[in-house]
Design a protein around this nucleic acid. Structure first.
Length: 271
DNA sequence: CATTGTCCCTGGAAGC
DNA sequence: TGCTTCCAGGGACAAT
């Protein structure tokens, strides 16, 4: 399940592979993949255009085109983007869309559960403006984070998952950040002391940076555009460790639901 | 407005 | 072995 570190990894991997590529054709195998355009409209706007780069905003991948428009991709739970060099074939199932480039290479959008999607964004569309601040950008400061927490009457984990509050954090890295900060996921966001908020701020940055450094977490169907896996899940202390004991204190980890999301934490290390 | 609940979808795991 | 049932979860949307 791609979160910020996974999407950042895919973005970086794709940058040298697709920048400057001319889109020769678009093949849509499941029309629902296109979320705001018909197959005809999408193809008409995209075919013949050159991809100008590879960016990320929250969990969205954004590929700017040379006409000012952009293609946005959200992988949601089970999506992946696979780059297929010229002359090579793809043995993956559940391919929902394919971008064919002028030089014979291709980019496949694979998505088992059909939660993911592709959007055509107009120039300055504002589509991504609803997202909260990027946690790894300089303008995300401890003070900004304090302000985001202030007055919020929801579990801190629910706030971390709220893309309008902060962009890019998902279920795994939320649990990891809360463990590193020593804070229980069910604590009220607005009730955190300043020092707790400061710890959590640092923990968020740490777990996301560490995740990027390891190429993302290859749980579920996540894979990089060349088909390789990430290693970030090896560093997880609580995420994906249901029914195990805490690596620090050996206390059995607790499993609960916060706003419908599976949540794992150490009842001893997290207060 | 703030917060919580429901639903989408599928493969894999668990139960019988 | 083979069938059925349950579960995971990001985010749009509905309900409270």
């Amino acid at each position: 399940m791609p979160e910020l570190p996974e999407v950042e990894t895919i973005k970086n991997d794709l940058l040298p592979l697709i920048s400057g590529q001319i889109i020769k054709a678009v093949e849509i195998y499941w029309p629902g993949t296109l979320r705001n355009a018909s197959v005809e409209t999408f193809s008409g706007e995209v075919v013949g255009r050159t991809i100008a780069g590879s960016k990320r905003r929250g969990k969205y991948l954004v590929f700017p085109l040379d006409n000012g428009k952009s293609i946005a991709v959200h992988l949601k739970m089970s999506g992946s983007l696979l780059f297929i060099p010229k002359g090579e074939s793809l043995s993956a199932s559940h391919v929902r869309a394919m971008f064919v480039f002028d030089d014979g290479s291709r980019l496949a959008f694979r998505d088992i559960r059909k939660f993911g999607g592709i959007w055509l964004l107009e120039k300055n569309s504002g589509f991504l403006d609803k997202l909260g601040p990027e946690p790894l950008e300089n303008n995300f400061t401890p003070q900004i984070f304090q302000n985001i927490l202030k007055g919020r009457d929801i579990p801190i984990k629910a706030l971390l998952l709220d893309q309008v509050a902060i962009a890019g954090i998902g279920n795994m890295y939320a649990d990891e950040a809360l463990f590193e900060a020593g804070i229980k996921p069910g604590e009220k966001a607005g009730g955190l002391r300043e020092d707790e908020a400061g710890k959590l701020y640092s923990a968020i940055l740490n777990v996301l940076k560490k995740g990027i450094k390891s190429g993302g977490a290859s749980v579920s169907t996540y894979q990089r555009p060349d088909g390789s896996k990430g290693l970030s899940h090896r560093d997880f202390r609580v995420a994906r460790r249901r029914d195990q004991q805490c690596l620090e204190c050996k206390t059995p980890l607790e499993y609960t639901k916060v706003r419908g999301r599976g949540t794992i934490y150490c009842p001893h290390c997290q207060k």
